[in-house]
Amino acid sequence: MATFDELLHAIDAVRAQRTRTVVGVSGFGGAGKSTLARRLVDTVRGSARMRGDDFVDPTLAGERSTDWSAVERMRLRSEVVDPFRAGTPSTFRRYDWLTAALASAEPLPAAEVLVINAVGLFHPDLDGALDLRVWVDVELDVATVRGKARDHRSGKDHDRLWEDVWTPNERDFAERFHPRDAADVLYVPDGDPEPGG
């Protein structure tokens, strides 16, 4: 298990080998991925964050899937990761959750380190695309309780989705793809994740 400082050293070691670095932060819903990603961007010089929710198709987010099919990993790769790593100017489109459609294209952030946080990130679709894979190591049951509590604090009641869709999706994904084992760094957060974690 890595401390935050040890994670920063791991990022520095990867940065020493390449001009642009992609850090993938994954874990179960409610584990604290967003909280860690925001903390990294606040701490790591020259970094920017890409939210996984911007690449989740809202029309599929409530459906059962053994591979988190709502996460558009191939679009994330083609619009963001590959051009970022190549240093090629490019644009990407976020999902607009209010309209359930893709928003207008916007330029990739100018950065040396791109931190991407998402569920279902450590998947064969992104093999070779992530320079450092960080797993926020919180057990599924604990992460689910935290995720529900986070939603309640923000005035959202997604309990049925957690129970019928998201938690089963997480369990199936973990059994199929073993994301914890695929990680380069295991990180245990301090305290409860903030909203968006």
Score class of each variant (00 low, 15 high):
T167E: 13
K148P: 00
A103W: 15
L130M: 08
D127V: 12
T144N: 06
E112W: 03
D172T: 11
V165D: 08
V119F: 06
L114S: 01
E112A: 05
N117A: 15
V138D: 01
W166Q: 07
V138N: 04
A103L: 14
S104D: 15
S104E: 15
K156T: 08
R153G: 02
P168Q: 08
V165A: 09
E112L: 02
G128I: 12
A110F: 09
G128T: 11
D125L: 15
W166L: 06
V145D: 09
H123Q: 09
P109C: 03
R171V: 11
A143F: 01
W162F: 14
L130K: 05
E139I: 04
R146I: 02
L114Y: 05
V136Y: 03
L108V: 03
A118T: 09
A129N: 05
R150Y: 02
G155M: 00
K156W: 08
R153S: 09
D141L: 01
L126Q: 12
P124A: 10
A118P: 07
G155Y: 03
E106K: 11
D157S: 01
K148A: 03
A111F: 04
W135Q: 00
P109V: 02
V119M: 11
K156H: 14
A149N: 05
R171E: 13
S104R: 13
L121Y: 12
E106I: 14
E163M: 06
D131T: 07
D131Q: 10
V138C: 03
R150A: 11
A110H: 12
R146P: 05
E139R: 10
H123M: 05
L114G: 02
W166N: 05
W162L: 02
V113G: 11
V165T: 14
L130I: 15
L140C: 08
V119Q: 12
W166S: 06
K156R: 15
N169T: 11
R153Y: 03
E170G: 14
L126P: 07
P124T: 10
L108I: 03
R146K: 08
V136H: 04
V113K: 07
L126Y: 12
V138R: 04
W162V: 00
R160G: 10
T167D: 08
H158C: 11
P109S: 05
N169S: 12
L140F: 00
F122W: 09
P107F: 08
N117R: 00
P124Y: 07
E112V: 00
R146E: 06
G155N: 03
H158W: 13
W135C: 00
G147I: 12
E106F: 03
D127P: 06
L130N: 09
A143Q: 02
D137A: 14
L140N: 02
V113F: 07
T167A: 13
D157R: 00
E163A: 15
V145Q: 10
R150W: 08
D131L: 02
N117I: 05
P109H: 04
V134S: 13
G147L: 10
D164N: 09
L121E: 10
D164I: 01
D164K: 05
A129G: 06
A103N: 11
V165L: 07
T167C: 03
V138K: 02
V136P: 08
I116V: 15
W135S: 00
G120R: 15
V113Q: 08
S104F: 10
D131N: 11
D137T: 04
L126G: 06
H158Y: 14
L130P: 11
A143G: 05
V136G: 06
A103D: 15
K156E: 14
D131A: 07
R150T: 06
D131I: 04
